[in-house]
């Protein structure tokens, strides 16, 4: 069974990818006999079939299929995996922020909420405040009260700036800080997409079957965000 992974290629860290991967420009170029393909496009509907496993980011999920697998981008980043590993007590204040050209923004925020909920508990309240979408940059504030005692501000600035992620965790006797602009191993940043890159291995290892539960979960958060839930 072939594995077909959809992702923007600049996000893939090939240095840490051990899976044997063949890059193709479109689904037409898929061949038999090769195990894993990486496809740099979003039109995946055409390749969903009974024999291939298709891996897509959660932001693109809108159908359920036996052979469709979904992965959450945030979970793939090595920095995020490390943060998950080192948070000793999920009680504290979380500040999370994404900046840049962000497409499928509602689904992206919903996806992040799925990921954070798995670590910090089911949200008790979610509140959304937005600036005027017609004005750039467009800023969204999501205030979340997670069940396990975490209060959080998730913020998204949709603009033409380079992609950036910041995360700050103020816990009990533990403070964690990450800023992708500061933690870049290159001083000339245009030579690398690190630290906002991840391996194909990670995608294959963390993706879940795109079943109704996964879709419902994303739909639930997307709908909460659209409705602008208030306390």
């Amino acid at each position: 069974m072939r594995k077909i992974v959809y992702k923007k290629l600049e996000k893939i860290d090939f240095a840490t990818t051990t899976a044997k991967v063949t890059i193709v420009k479109s689904a037409d170029q898929l061949t038999e006999g090769i195990e894993t393909f990486l496809v740099d496009e979003v039109n995946f509907d055409s390749v969903i079939n009974d024999t291939d496993k298709v891996y897509i980011p959660s932001t693109l999920l809108n159908v359920v299929n036996e052979n469709l697998y979904v992965y959450y981008e945030l979970e793939q980043y090595p920095f995020f995996k490390k943060i998950k590993e080192v948070i000793v007590n999920p009680k504290g204040v979380l500040r999370f922020r994404r900046t840049g050209i962000i497409t499928e923004n509602q689904r992206l925020i919903a996806s992040d909420l799925v990921v954070f909920s798995a670590i910090l508990g089911e949200p008790l309240t979610i509140q959304v405040k937005r600036t005027t979408p017609a004005v750039t940059p467009y800023h969204t504030i999501v205030t979340v009260n997670f069940g396990n005692g975490t209060m959080a501000h998730l913020e998204y600035t949709f603009s033409n700036d380079d992609e950036k992620i910041e995360l700050e965790w103020s816990g009990i006797k533990q403070i964690i800080e990450f800023n992708s602009a500061e933690m870049n191993p290159f001083s000339l940043k245009n030579y690398t997409s690190l630290p906002l890159a991840y391996s194909v291995d990670s995608i294959l290892a963390t993706a879940r079957k795109a079943d109704q539960n996964v879709l419902n979960r994303l739909e639930e958060f997307t709908s909460l965000l659209s409705g602008g839930v208030t306390k």
């Binding site: 204040v93 501000h153 103020s170």
Partner: peptide, 13 residues
């Protein structure tokens, strides 16, 4: 219509 977030704490040890 400007929106803002603020984080106030005595979280630093």
């Amino acid at each position: 219509g400007v929106i803002a977030t603020h984080d106030a704490s005595w979280s630093r040890f």
